[in-house]
Amino acid sequence: MSKAPFLAGAILSLLGAGVIAEAMRLPTIPGQTYGPGFFPVLIGAGLLVFGAIYALSVRRPMQAVILLEGEGTAPDEAEETVPERPFYGALAWLVTGLVATIFLWETAGFVLLMSVVLTVFMILLGVRFWHAGLVSIASTIIVYALFIKILMVPLPAGLLAPLGL
């Protein structure tokens, strides 16, 4: 439970140190006290200090205070149905799908890419194949038409360009 906050605090603290080191290397403006490195150094120091406090506070009794303040905000989850097991498959596909989208954007084209990514995503979440396919193909085509025709956003046609889409 307290592992994640500790880790986050420690990482952010280290990040702060890195930021300070990097900011020191920024050029100064001759004849001026405050240059482009001034704020990054302050920000780095802030991260360093408060990251450390945050990491340590979760290990010390201070935690009680933070939890008392924070946990009051928990939504009434009780009424929701019991969560199922995590969807690791869909998660992995989501990340790979987005990365693939970035690399194949121009070549494959928007409609093709998004249809595939979304269909598989839905199937992994238990939607039937034909249903998933229909939903994703229909919605991508609608979005594509909307953005190209009305909003003038240049979504790539990619492989489907010959179809005149």
Binding site: F121, F147, V153
Partner: peptide
């Protein structure tokens, strides 16, 4: 929800792209 999330994802992607037209 799965269908809704798929459509959200779609709009997130187009919305992010559309602001500067860059992948």
């Amino acid at each position: 929800r799965p269908q809704l999330m798929a459509v959200i994802l779609l709009f997130c992607i187009v919305g992010s792209f559309a602001i500067n037209n860059t992948i």
